[in-house]
Simulated assay, not measured.
Amino acid sequence: MGNECCFICGLQESGGYPISSCIIMSRRPTTARRPGDGGGIPFVGSFHSKSRPSKILTVGLMIVGALLVVSYVYRGPGGRNDLETFSRLEGVSCAFEVLSTLPFLKKAYGDSMRKVLHVGPDTCSVVSNLLKEDDTEAFGIEPYDLDEVDGNCKSLVRKGIVRVADIKFSLPYRAKSFSLVIVSDALDYLSPKYLNRTLPELARVAADGVVMLSGYPGQQKAKMAEASKFGRPAKFRSSSWWVRFFVQSSLEENEAAIKKFEQAAAKKSYKPGCQVFHLKAYQ
């Protein structure tokens, strides 16, 4: 009886160890195995091992399912959820911040939101959301080649609402063509040499002002594939760096718009995930 009790405990504790292990633990002499003993069944351990592949398979299916969901959301029609997913996966996305700041931009600029130009990656998504706003005309410039775009973006390009243009050179618009110009996720990839050309161009085509969104220093930078697409990795500069650059470029910050924007954001306890600068247009 003592040997049988030890054997049973051994099976419970070790999950199917051979009876010899139990004997060593008990230091008692062995007895003949009976056909009913679990230790005499050669495949007892195999029943336990079969549960491992099934667990691995379950985890694998869950991972594949999650990747499919992320892929669908990321490549789906342009919209706020797409940009939010992008911001979480890739690090910083100031294009998403554009949509988040719209209520506060309306408070700051009022009628100046009637004709808006957005410049930057994911402009199809931003423009699509701007067009949903009442009394707002929206246009966009995608500074890089469009790859694998959805039908909505193709339609915007076909209608001329969104254009693909190299922002390091003159923009394809006349002076003061838009009430407000909003730029995001684009200037962080330009060197000071090209910023000296691009930022004044944005101010030239704006009638009332330029809203510029830039990443904070220390934020996650673009992956290698993105750096290759943009020509160089993102360089997130401090607010003091940008202020000095504005002065050197004869661009003035719009103090009135800054105050209205900050007051509206404070009422909702909103803190932008990107730096937001408000510049006056050239007079």
Rank of each mutant, 00 (worst) to 15 (best):
F277V: 06
Y72K: 14
V126Q: 07
V210T: 08
D208G: 00
A257G: 03
S155Y: 09
F86R: 15
I19R: 04
S250W: 02
F86E: 13
S125T: 12
D188C: 11
L251H: 07
Y17Q: 15
D134E: 14
L195K: 12
I19Y: 02
V73S: 00
P233N: 06
P77G: 05
R232E: 04
L156Y: 06
G79P: 00
L89E: 01
A264W: 05
L251D: 01
V181R: 09
L146Q: 07
L190E: 10
S21I: 14
E148C: 02
S26R: 10
L213T: 09
A32W: 03
V59H: 04
A175M: 10
I23C: 07
V247W: 01
I167Y: 01
N81M: 11
F178S: 06
R27G: 13
F246M: 05
S228C: 02
T85W: 11
V205F: 02
E142R: 06
I19Q: 01
Y173M: 13
S170M: 13
R33Y: 00
R197F: 09
G16T: 07
V119D: 04
S239W: 00
A207D: 13
R197L: 12
T123R: 07
R114H: 12
M212I: 12
L11R: 08
K259N: 05
N152D: 07
E253N: 04
D145N: 08
T136H: 00
V164Y: 00
S177G: 06
Y216S: 04
S239Q: 14
A203W: 06
S21L: 15
S46N: 11
L279W: 01
L156M: 12
E4F: 05
V98H: 01
E13C: 10
G38V: 14
S21V: 15
M113V: 11
S228H: 03
V149N: 01
S51H: 08
S170A: 15
K176Y: 02
S54M: 14
E148D: 13
A186K: 10
P143V: 09
K271L: 12
Y216P: 00
G65N: 12
V70L: 15
D185F: 05
V64R: 05
G91T: 07
H278C: 05
I56K: 02
K223P: 01
S177V: 04
S184P: 09
P42H: 05
K271T: 14
G40L: 09
C124F: 08
L187E: 04
V205M: 08
C94F: 00
R33L: 13
T123D: 10
V183N: 10
S54I: 15
G39K: 02
G209P: 08
F7G: 05
L171Q: 11
E252A: 09
K55F: 07
L67Y: 03
I41N: 11
G40F: 01
